[in-house]
Amino acid sequence: MKAEAVHKPAAARLRLTKKKAKSSNRNNLAGYIFISPWLLGFLLLTVWPIIQSFYLSFTEYSLLEAPTWTGTQNYANIFKNDTDFTTSLKVTFIFVLFSVPLKLFFSLMVAMMLNKNLKGMNLYRTAIYFPSLIGGSIAVAALWRNMFNLNGYFNHVLSWFGIQGVGWITNPHTSLATLILLNTWQFGSTMVIFLAGLKQIPNELYESASVDGASKVRKFFHITLPMLSPVMFFNLVLGIIGSFQTFTAAFIVTQGGPINSTYMYALFLYDKAFKHYQMGYASALAWILLVIVALMTAINFLVSRYWVFYETDGGKQK
Protein backbone atom coordinates (compact mmCIF):
# COMPACT_ATOMS: atom_id res chain seq x y z
CA MET A 1 0.00 0.00 0.00
CA LYS A 2 2.72 2.37 1.00
CA ALA A 3 4.49 1.85 -2.24
CA GLU A 4 1.62 3.40 -4.14
CA ALA A 5 2.38 6.36 -6.28
CA VAL A 6 0.61 8.81 -4.13
CA HIS A 7 1.60 11.93 -5.98
CA LYS A 8 -0.01 10.73 -9.15
CA PRO A 9 -3.51 11.76 -10.02
CA ALA A 10 -6.37 9.35 -10.22
CA ALA A 11 -6.06 8.12 -13.78
CA ALA A 12 -2.35 7.60 -13.67
CA ARG A 13 -2.50 5.88 -10.35
CA LEU A 14 -5.32 3.65 -11.40
CA ARG A 15 -3.32 2.58 -14.42
CA LEU A 16 -0.27 1.84 -12.30
CA THR A 17 -2.32 -0.32 -10.02
CA LYS A 18 -3.54 -2.35 -12.89
CA LYS A 19 -0.10 -2.85 -14.33
CA LYS A 20 1.33 -4.13 -11.11
CA ALA A 21 -1.68 -6.38 -10.67
CA LYS A 22 -1.19 -6.06 -6.98
CA SER A 23 -4.82 -6.45 -6.18
CA SER A 24 -5.32 -9.50 -4.03
CA ASN A 25 -8.46 -11.57 -4.05
CA ARG A 26 -9.48 -10.14 -0.73
CA ASN A 27 -9.16 -6.65 -2.11
CA ASN A 28 -11.15 -7.65 -5.15
CA LEU A 29 -13.98 -8.90 -3.01
CA ALA A 30 -13.98 -5.86 -0.74
CA GLY A 31 -13.74 -3.51 -3.69
CA TYR A 32 -16.66 -5.03 -5.49
CA ILE A 33 -18.71 -5.10 -2.31
CA PHE A 34 -18.12 -1.40 -1.86
CA ILE A 35 -18.89 -0.41 -5.43
CA SER A 36 -21.76 -2.88 -5.77
CA PRO A 37 -24.54 -0.27 -5.32
CA TRP A 38 -23.29 1.65 -8.31
CA LEU A 39 -22.39 -1.42 -10.35
CA LEU A 40 -25.82 -2.96 -9.83
CA GLY A 41 -27.59 0.27 -10.74
CA PHE A 42 -25.40 0.64 -13.76
CA LEU A 43 -26.12 -2.86 -15.02
CA LEU A 44 -29.82 -2.79 -14.20
CA LEU A 45 -30.87 0.74 -15.06
CA THR A 46 -28.21 2.65 -16.95
CA VAL A 47 -26.45 0.39 -19.39
CA TRP A 48 -29.48 -0.55 -21.46
CA PRO A 49 -30.61 3.01 -22.18
CA ILE A 50 -27.03 3.89 -23.11
CA ILE A 51 -26.79 1.00 -25.56
CA GLN A 52 -30.19 1.95 -26.93
CA SER A 53 -29.17 5.53 -27.54
CA PHE A 54 -26.07 4.31 -29.36
CA TYR A 55 -28.19 2.08 -31.55
CA LEU A 56 -30.68 4.87 -32.18
CA SER A 57 -27.90 7.13 -33.40
CA PHE A 58 -27.81 4.94 -36.52
CA THR A 59 -31.52 5.24 -37.14
CA GLU A 60 -34.19 7.70 -38.09
CA TYR A 61 -36.49 7.80 -35.08
CA SER A 62 -39.35 10.25 -34.64
CA LEU A 63 -40.41 8.75 -31.27
CA LEU A 64 -43.93 8.59 -32.70
CA GLU A 65 -43.12 5.63 -34.93
CA ALA A 66 -40.59 2.81 -34.81
CA PRO A 67 -36.95 3.62 -35.67
CA THR A 68 -35.63 2.74 -39.12
CA TRP A 69 -31.99 1.84 -39.67
CA THR A 70 -30.10 4.40 -41.73
CA GLY A 71 -26.52 3.39 -41.04
CA THR A 72 -24.08 6.23 -40.59
CA GLN A 73 -26.28 8.75 -42.36
CA ASN A 74 -26.94 10.84 -39.24
CA TYR A 75 -23.24 11.23 -38.60
CA ALA A 76 -22.55 12.02 -42.23
CA ASN A 77 -25.25 14.69 -42.26
CA ILE A 78 -24.00 16.23 -39.05
CA PHE A 79 -20.45 16.61 -40.30
CA LYS A 80 -21.21 17.44 -43.91
CA ASN A 81 -24.10 19.83 -44.01
CA ASP A 82 -25.40 20.91 -40.66
CA THR A 83 -24.58 24.54 -39.99
CA ASP A 84 -26.53 24.43 -36.71
CA PHE A 85 -24.08 21.79 -35.53
CA THR A 86 -21.04 23.94 -36.19
CA THR A 87 -22.74 27.04 -34.80
CA SER A 88 -23.85 25.37 -31.60
CA LEU A 89 -20.48 23.71 -31.13
CA LYS A 90 -18.77 27.06 -31.51
CA VAL A 91 -21.15 28.76 -29.11
CA THR A 92 -20.67 25.98 -26.58
CA PHE A 93 -16.88 26.08 -26.80
CA ILE A 94 -16.86 29.82 -26.21
CA PHE A 95 -19.20 29.32 -23.28
CA VAL A 96 -16.99 26.64 -21.74
CA LEU A 97 -13.82 28.58 -22.36
CA PHE A 98 -15.05 31.61 -20.45
CA SER A 99 -17.52 30.32 -17.95
CA VAL A 100 -15.44 27.51 -16.44
CA PRO A 101 -12.40 29.60 -15.37
CA LEU A 102 -14.58 32.54 -14.36
CA LYS A 103 -16.78 30.42 -12.18
CA LEU A 104 -13.82 28.59 -10.64
CA PHE A 105 -12.02 31.78 -9.80
CA PHE A 106 -15.06 33.57 -8.50
CA SER A 107 -16.32 30.70 -6.39
CA LEU A 108 -12.91 30.08 -4.85
CA MET A 109 -12.63 33.74 -3.89
CA VAL A 110 -16.08 33.72 -2.34
CA ALA A 111 -15.47 30.43 -0.58
CA MET A 112 -12.33 31.89 1.03
CA MET A 113 -14.27 34.96 2.02
CA LEU A 114 -16.96 32.79 3.61
CA ASN A 115 -14.49 30.48 5.31
CA LYS A 116 -13.94 32.84 8.20
CA ASN A 117 -15.23 32.68 11.71
CA LEU A 118 -17.37 35.76 11.77
CA LYS A 119 -20.64 36.37 13.50
CA GLY A 120 -23.60 35.94 11.18
CA MET A 121 -21.60 33.94 8.68
CA ASN A 122 -24.53 31.52 8.39
CA LEU A 123 -26.67 34.32 7.08
CA TYR A 124 -24.06 35.62 4.66
CA ARG A 125 -23.50 32.18 3.26
CA THR A 126 -27.18 31.55 2.78
CA ALA A 127 -27.74 34.92 1.15
CA ILE A 128 -24.85 34.46 -1.22
CA TYR A 129 -25.88 30.93 -2.03
CA PHE A 130 -29.43 32.01 -2.77
CA PRO A 131 -29.13 32.65 -6.52
CA SER A 132 -27.92 29.09 -6.95
CA LEU A 133 -30.89 27.74 -5.03
CA ILE A 134 -33.58 29.08 -7.27
CA GLY A 135 -33.05 26.66 -10.09
CA GLY A 136 -34.59 27.10 -13.50
CA SER A 137 -38.33 27.58 -13.15
CA ILE A 138 -40.42 29.90 -15.28
CA ALA A 139 -40.47 32.33 -12.40
CA VAL A 140 -36.70 32.45 -12.62
CA ALA A 141 -36.79 33.10 -16.34
CA ALA A 142 -38.96 36.14 -15.64
CA LEU A 143 -36.51 37.20 -12.98
CA TRP A 144 -33.54 36.90 -15.29
CA ARG A 145 -35.24 38.81 -18.04
CA ASN A 146 -36.11 41.45 -15.52
CA MET A 147 -32.50 41.71 -14.48
CA PHE A 148 -30.97 41.93 -17.91
CA ASN A 149 -33.48 43.75 -20.08
CA LEU A 150 -33.02 47.30 -21.26
CA ASN A 151 -34.28 48.93 -18.07
CA GLY A 152 -33.34 46.04 -15.81
CA TYR A 153 -31.43 45.78 -12.58
CA PHE A 154 -28.11 45.12 -14.22
CA ASN A 155 -28.25 48.27 -16.31
CA HIS A 156 -29.31 50.13 -13.21
CA VAL A 157 -26.17 49.02 -11.40
CA LEU A 158 -24.09 49.93 -14.45
CA SER A 159 -25.57 53.40 -14.46
CA TRP A 160 -23.98 54.01 -11.03
CA PHE A 161 -20.69 53.80 -12.84
CA GLY A 162 -21.90 55.94 -15.70
CA ILE A 163 -22.22 53.07 -18.17
CA GLN A 164 -25.13 52.97 -20.59
CA GLY A 165 -26.37 49.39 -20.92
CA VAL A 166 -28.02 47.57 -23.80
CA GLY A 167 -30.73 44.91 -23.96
CA TRP A 168 -28.25 42.30 -22.82
CA ILE A 169 -30.09 39.11 -23.65
CA THR A 170 -31.75 40.34 -26.82
CA ASN A 171 -28.72 41.68 -28.58
CA PRO A 172 -26.85 39.02 -30.56
CA HIS A 173 -23.51 40.59 -29.64
CA THR A 174 -24.02 40.48 -25.88
CA SER A 175 -26.43 37.59 -25.34
CA LEU A 176 -23.79 34.88 -24.98
CA ALA A 177 -21.69 37.02 -22.64
CA THR A 178 -24.80 37.59 -20.55
CA LEU A 179 -25.47 33.88 -20.26
CA ILE A 180 -21.86 33.35 -19.20
CA LEU A 181 -22.32 35.99 -16.54
CA LEU A 182 -25.58 34.47 -15.46
CA ASN A 183 -23.92 31.11 -15.15
CA THR A 184 -21.18 32.64 -13.05
CA TRP A 185 -23.78 34.28 -10.85
CA GLN A 186 -25.00 30.81 -9.97
CA PHE A 187 -21.60 29.85 -8.66
CA GLY A 188 -23.03 28.40 -5.45
CA SER A 189 -22.49 24.68 -5.96
CA THR A 190 -18.87 25.10 -6.96
CA MET A 191 -18.39 27.44 -4.04
CA VAL A 192 -19.90 25.00 -1.55
CA ILE A 193 -17.58 22.25 -2.74
CA PHE A 194 -14.63 24.59 -2.28
CA LEU A 195 -15.92 25.49 1.14
CA ALA A 196 -16.14 21.85 2.15
CA GLY A 197 -12.63 21.38 0.77
CA LEU A 198 -11.27 24.35 2.71
CA LYS A 199 -12.77 22.93 5.87
CA GLN A 200 -10.85 19.75 5.35
CA ILE A 201 -7.48 21.49 5.44
CA PRO A 202 -6.03 20.96 8.92
CA ASN A 203 -5.65 24.18 10.85
CA GLU A 204 -2.33 22.99 12.18
CA LEU A 205 -0.79 23.61 8.80
CA TYR A 206 -1.69 27.28 8.90
CA GLU A 207 -0.69 27.55 12.53
CA SER A 208 2.76 26.13 12.01
CA ALA A 209 3.19 28.29 8.92
CA SER A 210 2.29 31.35 10.98
CA VAL A 211 4.90 30.36 13.51
CA ASP A 212 7.38 30.26 10.66
CA GLY A 213 6.28 33.78 9.78
CA ALA A 214 4.69 32.98 6.41
CA SER A 215 2.67 35.72 4.76
CA LYS A 216 -0.98 35.34 3.74
CA VAL A 217 -0.09 35.09 0.09
CA ARG A 218 2.52 32.49 0.82
CA LYS A 219 0.06 30.47 2.88
CA PHE A 220 -2.42 30.58 0.02
CA PHE A 221 0.04 29.31 -2.56
CA HIS A 222 1.84 26.83 -0.37
CA ILE A 223 -0.93 25.43 1.78
CA THR A 224 -4.38 26.30 0.51
CA LEU A 225 -3.88 25.69 -3.21
CA PRO A 226 -2.03 22.37 -2.97
CA MET A 227 -4.30 21.05 -0.24
CA LEU A 228 -7.30 22.12 -2.24
CA SER A 229 -6.06 20.76 -5.54
CA PRO A 230 -8.09 17.49 -5.51
CA VAL A 231 -11.24 19.52 -5.00
CA MET A 232 -10.11 22.09 -7.55
CA PHE A 233 -9.52 19.27 -9.98
CA PHE A 234 -12.99 17.94 -9.31
CA ASN A 235 -14.56 21.33 -9.91
CA LEU A 236 -12.59 21.79 -13.09
CA VAL A 237 -13.49 18.40 -14.55
CA LEU A 238 -17.13 18.64 -13.57
CA GLY A 239 -17.28 22.27 -14.61
CA ILE A 240 -16.19 21.32 -18.11
CA ILE A 241 -18.50 18.32 -18.34
CA GLY A 242 -21.40 20.37 -17.00
CA SER A 243 -20.74 23.41 -19.16
CA PHE A 244 -20.70 21.35 -22.32
CA GLN A 245 -24.18 20.23 -21.41
CA THR A 246 -25.49 23.63 -20.30
CA PHE A 247 -29.13 23.79 -21.13
CA THR A 248 -31.41 25.54 -18.66
CA ALA A 249 -30.21 29.10 -19.03
CA ALA A 250 -30.37 29.05 -22.81
CA PHE A 251 -33.64 27.16 -22.79
CA ILE A 252 -35.63 29.39 -20.50
CA VAL A 253 -34.03 32.78 -21.06
CA THR A 254 -33.01 33.06 -24.70
CA GLN A 255 -34.28 29.91 -26.42
CA GLY A 256 -30.98 29.96 -28.25
CA GLY A 257 -31.54 33.36 -29.82
CA PRO A 258 -31.27 35.97 -31.06
CA ILE A 259 -30.16 34.38 -34.32
CA ASN A 260 -28.55 31.31 -32.75
CA SER A 261 -26.16 33.48 -30.75
CA THR A 262 -26.82 31.38 -27.64
CA TYR A 263 -27.71 28.13 -29.34
CA MET A 264 -25.97 25.77 -26.92
CA TYR A 265 -25.22 22.26 -28.04
CA ALA A 266 -27.55 20.70 -25.47
CA LEU A 267 -30.38 22.97 -26.56
CA PHE A 268 -29.80 22.11 -30.20
CA LEU A 269 -29.87 18.44 -29.24
CA TYR A 270 -33.06 18.89 -27.23
CA ASP A 271 -34.78 20.69 -30.10
CA LYS A 272 -33.85 17.89 -32.46
CA ALA A 273 -35.09 15.21 -30.09
CA PHE A 274 -38.30 16.64 -28.69
CA LYS A 275 -39.28 19.54 -30.93
CA HIS A 276 -38.40 18.28 -34.38
CA TYR A 277 -38.98 14.57 -33.70
CA GLN A 278 -35.49 13.48 -34.75
CA MET A 279 -34.37 11.37 -31.81
CA GLY A 280 -32.00 9.33 -33.97
CA TYR A 281 -30.18 12.43 -35.09
CA ALA A 282 -30.15 13.75 -31.54
CA SER A 283 -28.62 10.52 -30.33
CA ALA A 284 -25.83 10.86 -32.86
CA LEU A 285 -25.27 14.42 -31.62
CA ALA A 286 -25.11 13.11 -28.06
CA TRP A 287 -22.48 10.53 -28.89
CA ILE A 288 -20.39 13.11 -30.69
CA LEU A 289 -20.57 15.28 -27.61
CA LEU A 290 -19.59 12.33 -25.47
CA VAL A 291 -16.43 11.84 -27.51
CA ILE A 292 -15.53 15.52 -27.28
CA VAL A 293 -16.11 15.73 -23.54
CA ALA A 294 -14.36 12.42 -22.89
CA LEU A 295 -11.31 13.71 -24.77
CA MET A 296 -11.29 16.91 -22.76
CA THR A 297 -11.60 14.93 -19.54
CA ALA A 298 -8.82 12.55 -20.49
CA ILE A 299 -6.53 15.50 -21.20
CA ASN A 300 -7.52 16.92 -17.84
CA PHE A 301 -6.59 13.73 -16.06
CA LEU A 302 -3.27 13.57 -17.89
CA VAL A 303 -2.37 17.15 -17.04
CA SER A 304 -3.56 16.78 -13.47
CA ARG A 305 -0.55 14.69 -12.49
CA TYR A 306 1.52 17.86 -12.68
CA TRP A 307 -0.58 19.93 -10.35
CA VAL A 308 -2.97 17.87 -8.27
CA PHE A 309 -1.62 16.94 -4.87
CA TYR A 310 -3.04 14.01 -2.96
CA GLU A 311 -2.52 13.52 0.77
CA THR A 312 0.00 10.87 1.61
CA ASP A 313 1.57 9.50 4.69
CA GLY A 314 3.64 12.39 5.92
CA GLY A 315 3.70 13.91 2.47
CA LYS A 316 3.01 17.46 3.59
CA GLN A 317 4.41 20.24 1.55
CA LYS A 318 6.64 22.27 3.73
Binding site: A142, R145, N146, N149, V166, G167, I169, T170, G257, P258
Partner: peptide, 15 residues
Protein backbone atom coordinates in the same frame (compact mmCIF):
# COMPACT_ATOMS: atom_id res chain seq x y z
CA UNK B 1 -35.61 48.15 -33.46
CA UNK B 2 -34.50 44.53 -33.74
CA UNK B 3 -33.29 44.03 -30.19
CA UNK B 4 -36.59 45.31 -28.84
CA UNK B 5 -38.49 42.98 -31.16
CA UNK B 6 -36.48 39.97 -30.07
CA UNK B 7 -37.27 40.79 -26.44
CA UNK B 8 -41.01 40.60 -27.08
CA UNK B 9 -42.78 37.63 -25.61
CA UNK B 10 -46.50 37.50 -26.13
CA UNK B 11 -48.73 37.36 -23.05
CA UNK B 12 -45.83 37.98 -20.71
CA UNK B 13 -46.86 40.96 -18.58
CA UNK B 14 -43.50 42.70 -18.96
CA UNK B 15 -42.50 41.58 -22.42
Amino acid sequence: PADMVSAFKENDPQA
